[in-house]
Design a protein around this nucleic acid. Sequence first.
DNA 1: GATGAATGAGTCTTCATTCAT
DNA 2: CATGAATGAAGACTCATTCAT
Lengths: 188, 188, 188, 188
Amino acid sequence: MACFDEKGFDETTTAEIAKRAGIAVGSVYDYFHDKRAILLEILRGTVEVVADTVVAGLDLSRWEDDDPRPAVRNLVHLVFHSRDVNPGIQRILWERFFKDPEFRAATEAIEHRVMGAIVATLDELKARGRLRIDDVETAAYVIHLSIEWVSSRLVLGDDPVSLDAAVDTASDMIERFLFPEPDSGERR
Amino acid sequence: MACFDEKGFDETTTAEIAKRAGIAVGSVYDYFHDKRAILLEILRGTVEVVADTVVAGLDLSRWEDDDPRPAVRNLVHLVFHSRDVNPGIQRILWERFFKDPEFRAATEAIEHRVMGAIVATLDELKARGRLRIDDVETAAYVIHLSIEWVSSRLVLGDDPVSLDAAVDTASDMIERFLFPEPDSGERR
Amino acid sequence: MACFDEKGFDETTTAEIAKRAGIAVGSVYDYFHDKRAILLEILRGTVEVVADTVVAGLDLSRWEDDDPRPAVRNLVHLVFHSRDVNPGIQRILWERFFKDPEFRAATEAIEHRVMGAIVATLDELKARGRLRIDDVETAAYVIHLSIEWVSSRLVLGDDPVSLDAAVDTASDMIERFLFPEPDSGERR
Amino acid sequence: MACFDEKGFDETTTAEIAKRAGIAVGSVYDYFHDKRAILLEILRGTVEVVADTVVAGLDLSRWEDDDPRPAVRNLVHLVFHSRDVNPGIQRILWERFFKDPEFRAATEAIEHRVMGAIVATLDELKARGRLRIDDVETAAYVIHLSIEWVSSRLVLGDDPVSLDAAVDTASDMIERFLFPEPDSGERR
DNA sequence: GATGAATGAGTCTTCATTCAT
DNA sequence: CATGAATGAAGACTCATTCAT
């Protein structure tokens, strides 16, 4: 993981991996069928961490009943910061995403888990009459991808935007999208 | 461009490029310093098309004064569909984006142009008191990236979400984020 | 043997052999010094079967005294069909024959046994005045190799020649070579 | 060819071939798609030489009309000695023959040419009433393989049989097989 | 005696780039 | 200005064999 994280996939040789692991090249192939298989395994683990974070954060019981807004804000905050671990691996994630179907499948499997959790939460909120949207599925998709990409760009790139400002802005966007306006009092 | 579009960057050899161009391999190097330079040039052109589309669409004079919402919707629609050209090239875009700084710089230069245009438009709308947001810069950033990624995923990936539904949903999200609620009448 | 027979020597790994044998790789090396040693042992056994068949068939006491021709025909038939067992192993035989001296020695040892038996039979027939040839040694050599190769090719290759026709033809050839013409009556 | 001839196919590395050819490894791949392709090309050439020899020797116009025996003897002699060129290559021939179908196909194509020539000659001789056999096709097959194998063994192996004796014996066998006995005079 | 994880030398093949013609 | 043959470094992967447990 360290190798890939630091240098990227194509730039890491199997020899380096073995050396860093303190084993022989052949032994690498005792544990993984392929160089690609190593990446796939790592990826699953890495993305899963992010996914777990989000799914846990979506637990409605932890949301204050009268105002879901702080929870949303908190969740966005969480996602943004969860991206900090192994940024190099996430870099590889996007590098391979559209290129390698098997790889995309692995990533999407986890994304689906996250989006499923989002949908469940939205459904529940909707049942409580707290939502102003209809197409919950697509909403979850758009929200998920937006957060995913903004946070990725901030962590992996060098865009001159502060993380906090982005969290605030993204949270605002999602809140206004999902929830009816409070009777009075404009935000911000 | 056809080579890269169809097979990807690493998967295309300079020999193929030369053959398809009807010239000799050596001649490729008369026009470009590098295989990478070819990509860079192509990318500038490709992304520019998308950028031009957006910038043109942001021309306020073409917006109806009393309700900016249809314009937003139209713009989102435009962006989503503009992604259809040379999808393979855009695939390479994301493949190299976090990997190659020079490459990212080229892409970001254009993104900045787009975001600048968004900011200008938002500033103007704000001056007219039509906006409910304060941090126009960050808003432009978040909106831009959201649309960018959702449309990329839909065009390049195989997510089971209809393009139209995504356009609708994304538009709703942006509108509610930017503009004060109309006095009455729920959307959708 | 099954491994080698089905896949060939180079194509079979020691790991496969061990697995198929239900033992550990290391244990293979307890019984054989080498991968090559396994092959050598198998080969000795396999070729021996063919050799035994021929040697038994050459037992003069089983030949009708007045006409050796049916016996020859029968013997050729036998050899041709004896090649059917473990064709993969025989394939390896020819694959290694000219390549590996130790291996060739093992094979030739058996061939010598067969050729010795042929020579003995011919000597006996000659003593009885039934043979028209002088150089019995070379005759045995040429006959043996001819039958060996024709039958190998038919069994291991895909030559469009019927086995029965080949047996007939080869038998005719050998008979006319060895035995004086019957006073009258042409064969075939 | 020198590399393969001296060391064998598997034992020769592409690096060695390149070095011996005085070019770079990559250049080898400019001329041949594969290591195997090199062998295939060489093989075709080598076997073709032998084939040409035989086909030329089978030209009936060069046969004395009244007695075909000397011609046969001469031909066998020719084949046996034609095997002397690049014995290493012929060694590889048998090593790959049953193993590599594409390879076998190439070899058999040439064998068919030879056997075709043999059949033509036999047909002609038969028309002239000089032959005692009926199944010309199978006869050609058996004769061809016999000579092929005996000569290969003598040249490539270390069998303790003199080449001249083998030529004599093989010639006798073929003659007696093909031609009616001369009225009087026993051979040898 | 059996095990099977570990070894690491060895090979083929690719391809961006150059430069003599 | 174009050509395209030549380059050769680089890298993924295999597998017979060993030996500590």
